[in-house]
Simulated assay, not measured.
Amino acid sequence: MTNMPPQWERGTTSRQAHVGLPPGTVEEEHGREGFYGPASHLYRLHAPTGWTGVEGPAVHRAYDTGALPPTDDALWPTLIVGNDQVAIGVQRIETGRPEFLRDADGDLCWFVHQGTGTLRTEYGPLAYAPGDYLVVPRGTTFRFEPAAPTHLLGIEAIRSRYQLPDRGLLGRHALFDPAVVEVPEPEAIDEEGEFVVVVKRDGHDTRITYPFHPCDVVGWKGDLAPMRLPVDAIRPVVSPRYHLPPSAHTTWVADGFVVCTFAPRPMETDPEALRLPFFHRNVDYDEVIFYHRGQFFSRAGIGEGFVTFHPTGLHHGPQPQARERDAEAAAGNGSAPRMADEVAVMVDARQPLHPGPEAASMEVDAYVASWVEGTAPRP
């Protein structure tokens, strides 16, 4: 049992966080440990994102990954942002390469944005389609075999592994039943020839050549294997009377970061409850979001396949256009339930993230200005 922490209250506040804000105020959560730790709520007269300019390395950034041309030249994803624990990149494959890959640096989590095909692994094949998570354990031999051009978000857990989060009082079947996770059936290929496996270790590639097909496994058993989780199998936790923080949508955990999934879900119906995210300043985690489909409920002017990067220290929350859109929808629908019709992948990293050398070619101009009243975002 956790002891109740002290709760100080000064000035004009709401009795319940995220509900019944004092008229004329906006709420900001100043919290630690990614919404799990100590926190206070500040009730402000102005949105803390109402700046007229931001300069320096902590500026919010956005990237259009569709600007990366499709190619079969790259073996590994193009880095957008990363650190010593996680590398977040994008890869656009046309027909695929002949080599097989093996990442000896960490687990790989792929999210399929576009395309269909087969993830060929030594454990067996996994068919993939848009909206699929594909988790490839460290040291697994694999290859993408696209049936259609494929656009992937890649999240590498460096020297770590992916696990399911502890769902606490919700129980182990909340969000998704582990039984919906698909693992491969063996499909041994007995074929002679010249087959190359590229092993990435400490960021450098080593090529191994075999006279037989590397996917020659006739059977396997154990609790380590490639996995497929379709996003449509995720059943988000929701509350009609309280806006839940992003941590409620945690899908995968690894050392130094978490992966969360924003999936379609009903929005709050209590007229006093916040429906859009509360303002916060990411004290302990850098935040990256990949937008897969739909209309992201706290953003305007962000297209499918975009990535946003919100470093620690600088406030963020709903943009003015999103707040206006939410107010108009609420006025038009009364108390009827509304849906957050979106699919997005969020990565929260404990250590500071840094843009990769090729990220600038995908960057969206003046994204940080999209919080300025009357300034349209620039997709």
Rank of each mutant, 00 (worst) to 15 (best):
P226Q: 04
A273D: 12
I234C: 06
R15Y: 03
P69V: 13
E122L: 09
L153C: 09
A248R: 01
D348L: 13
P320V: 06
W8L: 14
P236S: 01
A263K: 09
A369P: 00
D84T: 11
C260A: 15
V283L: 15
D216M: 15
L21I: 05
L21N: 04
D190T: 07
G20K: 10
L134S: 09
A254Q: 03
W51Q: 02
V90D: 00
F296R: 09
A87I: 11
L75W: 04
L224D: 03
S40Q: 04
Y128T: 03
A327T: 11
V372P: 00
V259A: 05
E156C: 11
G313Q: 07
C109Y: 05
E342Y: 02
D190F: 08
F297D: 12
G317E: 12
H310Y: 14
R15P: 02
A273G: 14
L75D: 08
E358T: 05
L152D: 14
T25A: 12
H243N: 07
A188E: 01
V238Y: 04
L79G: 03
W220C: 05
G31K: 05
V136S: 08
Q7D: 14
P22N: 03
M1F: 14
W110V: 10
P48F: 01
V19P: 02
P266S: 14
P165I: 08
L21T: 10
A127P: 06
R10H: 12
E363C: 02
A360I: 01
R172P: 00
P70T: 10
R159Q: 14
W8G: 08
F212E: 11
V180Y: 00
P264V: 11
M4L: 09
G115T: 07
G313C: 08
E191P: 00
H46Y: 06
G96D: 13
P226K: 04
H249D: 14
H315Y: 15
F111N: 04
P57R: 13
T140N: 10
G24A: 03
Y43F: 14
V180D: 00
P130C: 07
P357K: 07
R143W: 10
G117A: 09
V135N: 06
G313L: 07
G356F: 00
Y36H: 13
L68M: 10
G117N: 07
V181E: 06
A376D: 06
A174K: 06
E304T: 15
P311W: 01
D73G: 13
F296P: 06
G356K: 01
H173W: 09
G117Q: 07
G139E: 03
F279K: 01
R102S: 10
A344C: 00
R167S: 02
M4Y: 08
R44A: 07
E272L: 14
L314K: 12
R325T: 11
S335N: 05
A74M: 07
H41I: 02
